[in-house]
Nucleic acid binder design. Structure first.
Lengths: 103, 103
DNA sequence: CATCTATTTGGTTATTTAGCCAAATAGATG
DNA sequence: CATCTATTTGGCTAAATAACCAAATAGATG
């Protein structure tokens, strides 16, 4: 059973990285309730709008988000409905962390 | 429906980060076939052993890996059997990334 | 067309993360 | 007990990431 090519690994890790920053994770979770524009997300995260914008671009480039301009705003939304499942996996992985007293 | 506390978000993102580096992802995937010692993983990753060791510590601290010393070696293993499911989610998220031509 | 609003981009600095080497540790073996 | 082996730790440098501010852009509105 061969491991993935380096390219697949890079791609996967880009997706994972896109969700591995606290602000970005918060954004993704919030978008589970539906699309939001940048200024909404700026409120949520509490950083400068340019910072939020950059987080959003990164997530979009990784394929995690889509965006659509309507009127004055740009609305971001999850590109895939599987984030909930993803987070359940993360939480399961997270609680493996109790018994690691060794070495 | 309130979002998580900051602490939960930090914890989750630590787990996600622990898997979001190419070398670490490779390690995790390889451990799906069973435990391995540091020098095996050094071969796999192709970095200095100290570098690999630091990746492993980080993953262990995040709760993703366990380790156990036997004889001269320290064997690392996945702390949770849900990594396969996690990766399936990642791949689904990854292929959302085709249609994002907008803005 | 001038202006206003929402967002992105560029530039800069600070912080974090990764990698390597050398030295320390801990346990096994002669 | 001296030594050997596998791993970790500390120190350092380089590279990547994050944050902010100021300026640019693009589209809506008067």
């Amino acid at each position: 059973m061969p491991l993935d090519t380096a390219k697949t690994t890079e791609r996967r890790s880009a997706v994972i990285k896109a969700l591995g920053h606290p602000s970005r994770l918060l954004i993704a979770e919030s978008l589970m309730n539906g699309e939001q524009c940048v200024c909404d997300l700026k409120e949520l995260v509490g950083s400068d709008m340019s910072t939020v914008s950059k987080h959003l671009s990164l997530m979009r480039e990784a394929g995690v988000l889509n965006c659509e301009k309507r009127g004055l705003n740009i609305y971001y939304s999850l590109a895939c409905d599987c984030l909930g499942e993803f987070l359940r996996c993360v939480d399961k992985l997270a609680c493996g962390g109790n018994k690691n007293t060794c070495c």
